[in-house]
Design a protein around this nucleic acid. Structure first.
Length: 279
DNA sequence: CTGCATGTTAGGTT
DNA sequence: CAACCTAACATGCA
């Protein structure tokens, strides 16, 4: 569920409350969500201080003393909740982290278990990048670098933007919204898009991601921030999950089609498959 | 019961 | 090598 704006919202919230805290212990359920054993992870964590909390793509990064990084990916249904200690665990709580001299705890909850908690010791930024293997940040890449990166890519634009190795941070919801705002059909082959179209795509990507961060993310199903609050951007969605409803720009009915294995929503009029000036 | 779900990746095919 | 599709992961919801 969480894409860049949701992860960014969580990271900002956690950074405000957790920077400087020192891990004291906790409870970790063994399972696929956790690399390494719970004991090993708790032993490594104990006594480490949180220097900063950041984000790379959809990964949450807790930078700790001793060059350790706690990397959390929320998958589809993962949640992080910062709660007063002690707090009851939910049915699908997989880890609880506790802190020295601080009466709050961090819960990691994930019903579908697509999330991951990893622990990396990295000497430098390049080392971390080698582990994550992500493309440039969607909100950091320049328009020229973006256009350059699309060159030679014969993938459908929807599939290309979903690929985290190409660009990090976008997911199914925001891609549909961005393509609609840019007037680009999701099946267009990326490298056939004009320079003008790519400039517009880059601009709409920035605009929509920033607006979504301002709205604290999109809660269409079960996304919640670290306090349990939903986002507000779902009120501003123009195409996602609106199959059969009129386009808010032109009143044409929104279509749904599976592309790259994912539900894709688009307006056939605002996002023509063929170049409009050719017809 | 069926179908679907905001993510990622492995494996097979074209 | 590039790109496509499907399945798999595990659970909840309409």
């Amino acid at each position: 569920m969480p894409e860049l704006p949701e992860v960014e919202t969580i990271v900002r919230g956690l950074a405000r409350k957790m920077t400087g805290l020192k891990f004291s212990g906790g409870t970790i359920r063994p399972g696929k969500l956790i690399e390494a054993s719970p004991e090993a992870m708790l032993n490594t964590l104990r006594g480490k201080k949180i220097l900063s909390i950041g984000r790379r793509g959809k990964h949450i990064l807790f930078h700790l003393t001793g060059q350790w990084i706690l990397v959390i990916h929320l998958g589809m249904t993962g949640k992080l909740q910062f709660l007063p200690h002690p707090n009851r665990q939910e049915k699908h709580t997989h880890a609880i982290f506790e802190f020295q001299d601080h009466p709050w705890e961090l819960h990691f909850i994930d019903p579908r278990k697509f999330g991951r908690i990893r622990f990396l010791r990295v000497a430098c930024k390049e080392h971390l990048e080698g582990h994550l293997r992500l493309g440039p940040e969607a909100l950091e890449i320049s328009s020229e670098a973006f256009i350059h990166r699309v060159r030679g890519k014969r993938k459908r634009i929807k599939a290309l933007l979903l690929d985290q190795h190409f660009l990090a941070g976008l997911g199914n919801i925001y891609i549909d919204e961005i393509l609609h705002a840019a007037g680009i059909h999701p099946l267009k082959i990326a490298c056939t898009l004009s320079r003008k179209a790519l400039l517009r795509l880059h601009g709409e990507m920035r605009r929509i991601l920033q607006k979504a961060i301002q709205s604290k993310g999109t809660s269409v199903r079960n996304y919640r921030d670290e306090t349990g609050s939903p986002g507000k951007f779902q009120k501003k969605l123009k195409v996602y999950s609106r199959e059969g409803q009129p386009c808010r720009s032109c009143r044409s009915l929104i279509l749904r089609k599976v592309i790259a294995g994912r539900s894709t929503f688009f307006c056939p009029r605002c996002q023509p498959e063929r170049n409009p000036q050719l017809k």
